Amino acid sequence: MARAHRRKQHKEPIVVRENLDFGLDGDDIPRYWLANNPYKTRMFDAVQATFPDGERYFIKAVRAFRDRITDPALQAEVTDFIRQEGQHGMVHTRYNERLKRQGIAIEAFTKHTRQIEETRMRRYSPEYNLALTASLEHFTAMMADLFFAEKSMLAGADERVRAMFAWHAIEEMEHKAVAFDVMKQVAKVGYFKRCAAMTHATFSFTLYTLISPWFMLRMDGYSPREALAIYTQHMPWALGKVLGRLLPMIARYYRPGFHPNDIPTVHNYMDWVESYQRGANPIAAGEAMYGAAA
């Protein structure tokens, strides 16, 4: 008799870390904190601008099924997931306040995100909203791997901002399977709805990521011609090094039988965790993770 194949699981404990201080209120953080590069900086800034309202959407989508969870372990994971996402929302709200001080009309970005999430909650079923949440959670977990596995992706970044993204990345990896497990075990979402939600999420997220930096660059004072030149220069990086590497990671989600814990945690995860355990210093932990990148 053939021996049953046992799939290896990559699951980290979900740890709630509260009241982390990244020094984001300091006006000495460069406007273009990522290697003095306007496009790369504003791409990160535009994506993270969606996080406070996005995290609230994720929490609502999972909470809709909380009363139906009978597994105590999954119930505990949902509680920790909600607490982690709540902390992410608070920190990124403070970061958005920094962008507002720079003259970025951040309310336009947050209002756009909020309107999309409210429309989804009103228009789609609770099951489909949960499927979208599970898809976007896979997106963020894979982005964490994309940007922190190699030094080149965040080389030259201000250590405080890089530390904020490192902490967020760590926790996305820790709770990467929670929404998925609720979707599969409790909401009973099938394969085709799961794939439809991922296609929807991929299209909307990619479109936003490519378009939104344009508006921030214009708010920075670049003329349309100057902004177009910046875009032209950086499209090989955005389409090749970012989306070109991210989309194959996303494609794993379409495999029948897929589970988020099938994917190994980024190799320098423990460097962050061990550094933080030593001194509860998120900036030092971020630098430890960056220093251990390939």
Rank of each mutant, 00 (worst) to 15 (best):
Phe203Asn: 07
His200Phe: 13
Ala197Ile: 08
Met153Gln: 12
Ala163Phe: 02
Ala187Gly: 10
Met164Arg: 01
Glu174Met: 06
Arg194Tyr: 06
Cys195Ser: 14
Cys195Asp: 08
Ala166Tyr: 03
Arg194Leu: 03
Met143Pro: 00
Ala166Ser: 12
Ala197Ser: 10
Met173Cys: 06
Ser135Ala: 15
Met173Trp: 06
Met198Pro: 02
Ala201Asp: 09
Met183Lys: 12
Ala149Arg: 15
Ile170Asn: 04
Arg194Trp: 05
Lys184Tyr: 02
Ser135Gly: 11
Ser204His: 09
Met143Gln: 12
His200Trp: 14
Ser204Asp: 11
Lys188Arg: 15
Val182Gly: 09
Lys188Phe: 05
Tyr208Ala: 11
Gly190His: 11
Ala179Tyr: 08
Phe148Cys: 02
Ala141Asn: 12
Lys184Thr: 09
Val178Leu: 12
Met143Leu: 14
Asp181Phe: 04
Phe165Thr: 02
Gln185Met: 08
Phe148Lys: 10
Met143Arg: 06
Glu137Arg: 10
Glu159Asp: 09
Leu146Asn: 10
Val186Asn: 07
Lys176Cys: 06
Arg194Met: 14
Met198Tyr: 05
Trp167Thr: 01
Asp158Pro: 01
Met153Cys: 00
Thr206Glu: 11
Asp145Thr: 13
Lys193Tyr: 03
Ala155Ser: 07
Val178Pro: 09
Gly156Ile: 00
Val161Ile: 15
Ala196Val: 05
Ala187Lys: 11
Thr202Cys: 04
Ala144Tyr: 04
Ala169Val: 03
Arg194Lys: 14
Arg194Glu: 15
Ala197Lys: 13
Arg194Val: 01
Asp158Tyr: 07
